[in-house]
Write a protein that binds this DNA or RNA. Structure first.
Lengths: 242, 242
DNA sequence: ATTAGTTGTCTACACAAATAGACAAATAGG
DNA sequence: CCTATTTGTCTATTTGTGTAGACAACTAAT
């Protein structure tokens, strides 16, 4: 009899448990020996070894024969502030991170009910959809899908292609400044498509931020849905502002 | 040859893909026939059937012989505002939801480096740790771990046990009002312990909110780490405040 | 009634996952 | 040098996953 048949192999569950123990600080520098881990998780030693092998190729662990298995130092999670003023480039540079956006697709679509409500346009109204990939040090960090009214911003795509920045593209289109009206956050398993673009495991977790930006008159400008890799990011919200 | 050996079975990946298609609206009322799903995902029909079986026991689908497989109506995600004033009970009642907190454990612990920094106490200082489970309509929604300085709030546990509310327990301890200083959000797979308490699958995803509350003088009062089930919740952040 | 389309059930087979045991190879400490 | 501890490798066996094909049972439409 299997305890729980959730379609996830035993070695993978052990690997996840070890990863969690490291994240929470239960395991610090060195792992317990394989036989002990096997007992603790109620599996065979070989199953533990497979879990460790996976975490090793992932770069989290390093096994040394005769000595033991050790935890490699990990880069800290990038902290991403969510507030009224959201400027990707500025936020990253504060943490000494050199970002770059990459346009990976642009399409003209019709607004569905939800999008129409967010952007305050009619259902079926033409929208520009911009697909972007944010890259930091050559490592993909997040994927965004932006929606703009095609009537109000007919040239937003070429403007973004030129400048490589939403802020500047909006300025070219006559929006001198904008602010975030609302951000909604949830989390899901990464979609196969995103997994490929973000170069992560097919079962990674993404934080999903669905936000609406408005201009200084309060009129909706952009609806943007961003998927952050949860193990590389932490979203930070401070009420007053720094 | 398998594309990626991430320890997740094929039927499970198909199930996740179907779940995602339903969430994103690609699949609305009725599923495509099993043979078509099998082709689309490049698997055998039996593998699709197993995926559908899992989603059916989960309550998401309902298969009818001779007719097809249908999507059951799902309750909408609960929207949880994060802002300066965070009061669980008030937030839920605005959405016509009757909440109740349950104390599931209390312990005295020593502050580690991170907790000490958050609460502005010395490393090793005594803390009260309060474990709570938030329940809505008999369904567990979130689990919180609260930390208070045991020196400043010696009776916080009994006060919470009496009143069933953090806000009221703090009032009894001399904190008339408080506000949230910072909220950090990330997401992980649920821990085995939390999975049991939250009555969810062992591989469910939780949104993790790590927040610090301060009193009106700005002194840290509470550090609270809450795990929300990601498929039942959406965190909402509005800059100005409604 | 017939037919086409769908889900349900059964058998069989190939292959991966997990268990089990034994021993080699390296390390660290007397 | 010797021993205990630890990771690495090998063989073998059992159990689970995914594939394949066939057919039954049910529905809806002609």
């Amino acid at each position: 009899m299997h305890a729980l048949d959730d379609g996830i192999s035993r070695w993978r569950r052990v690997a996840d448990a070890i990863r969690a123990d490291i994240a929470s600080g239960v395991i610090a520098q060195q792992l317990p020996p394989e036989v002990e881990l096997a007992e603790r998780h109620g599996v065979n030693r070989h199953t533990v070894r497979r879990a460790i092998a996976a975490l090793s190729t992932e770069g989290l662990l390093r096994a040394e024969r005769g000595r033991g298995t050790f935890v490699n130092a990990q880069p800290p999670r990038v902290i991403y502030p969510i507030g009224e003023r959201v400027r990707f480039r500025e936020n990253m540079m504060k943490q000494s991170i050199e970002p770059s956006g990459r346009l990976i697709g642009a399409e003209r679509v019709a607004a569905d009910a939800r999008q129409a409500a967010q952007l305050n346009v009619a259902v079926g109204a033409p929208l520009h959809r911009l697909e972007r990939l944010a890259v930091v040090d050559g490592m993909p960090m997040s994927r965004s899908t932006s929606l703009f009214s095609a009537e109000r911003f007919p040239d937003i795509i070429s403007a973004y292609a030129e400048t490589g920045s939403i802020t500047q593209a909006l300025q070219k289109s006559g929006v001198s400044d904008y602010r975030r009206r609302e951000t909604r956050i949830t989390a899901e398993r990464v979609s196969p498509n995103d997994a490929e673009l973000l170069q992560c495991a097919s079962d990674a977790i993404v934080l999903i931020s669905n936000a609406v930006d408005v201009d200084m008159e309060g009129k909706p400008v952009q609806s943007v849905r961003t998927r952050f890799l949860a193990d590389r990011f932490e979203l930070s919200f401070k009420p007053e502002g720094d």
